[in-house]
Nucleic acid binder design. Structure first.
Lengths: 123, 123
DNA sequence: TCCATGTGTCGAGACTAATCGACATATTAG
DNA sequence: CTAATATGTCGATTAGTCTCGACACATGGA
């Protein structure tokens, strides 16, 4: 991942409305939500929301697909993976000894099939 | 992690100089670097850098410690872990089935004791 | 104490982002 | 074709950010 793209993603998420939109779309994976419904959820005018959605799209965090009159937006899960990878990349590069505990703390957050896992960074 | 804190962190990293400073300090873990040397590295005036360092500090991404005349800055590894956790938290909450592959792709990036691991998101 | 060195703070100018009314475009129904 | 619905674009205003010169503060040595 390029720094430039990461900066776009960070800037996109550094805004309360947009961060909430992104989280909302994560909750609604993989169905997504139409632009109007997102605006209603956030209690924002449709044109303001349109701008926010464009910024998130340009950042590669969400994607749009026309469905008759509505435009459905979905979170791009790859974006989370890529951005997360970018965050830990630096320490991975030369020094896995520092990075390993980060991953270790993160792993129990997503258990393959157990449920007692919300102790570390999940909340 | 609170949204507010996450937004501070995202905003702090959404700026080329600050992102580079953060990466620089990650490379220099755990020794850190004095403010002046950071400014020299980035070819920025000391007062501009001071502002950037203050923003990163307020965001909880780095920390400062006085050492005689110099002030040493260090990356806070917890910050990466917390921010990463925040990013994947939403899908973890209700739907580990979506989140699991994200972690799976990330894990080989930091091998406990092997070296062939730079295939996925490491670069 | 006085000076040099290393950092932080303040304030102004330039730039960029956020918001929203008004208008434009696209799709579908009648 | 016309109207209704859903969304995007433009332009202006307001607010916030970035940068850097000038100055202030803190530390250590002579």
């Amino acid at each position: 991942m390029e720094s430039e793209q990461a900066i776009l993603a960070f800037a996109a998420l550094a805004q309360p409305t947009r961060l909430n939109v992104f989280r909302l779309l994560m909750e609604h994976e993989p169905d997504g939500l139409p632009a109007g419904e997102i605006a209603r959820h956030m209690a924002a005018p449709h044109n303001t929301m349109s701008t926010h959605l464009a910024i998130l799209t340009r950042a590669g965090l969400i994607e749009a697909e026309r469905q008759s009159r509505s435009i459905i937006y979905r979170a791009k899960l790859d974006a989370v993976r890529t951005l997360t990878g970018f965050l830990v990349k630096d320490c991975c590069g030369g020094r896995p000894e520092i990075c390993a505990p980060l991953i270790a703390d993160l792993a129990p957050c997503c258990p393959p099939n157990k449920s007692a896992a919300k102790e570390t960074v999940c909340d």
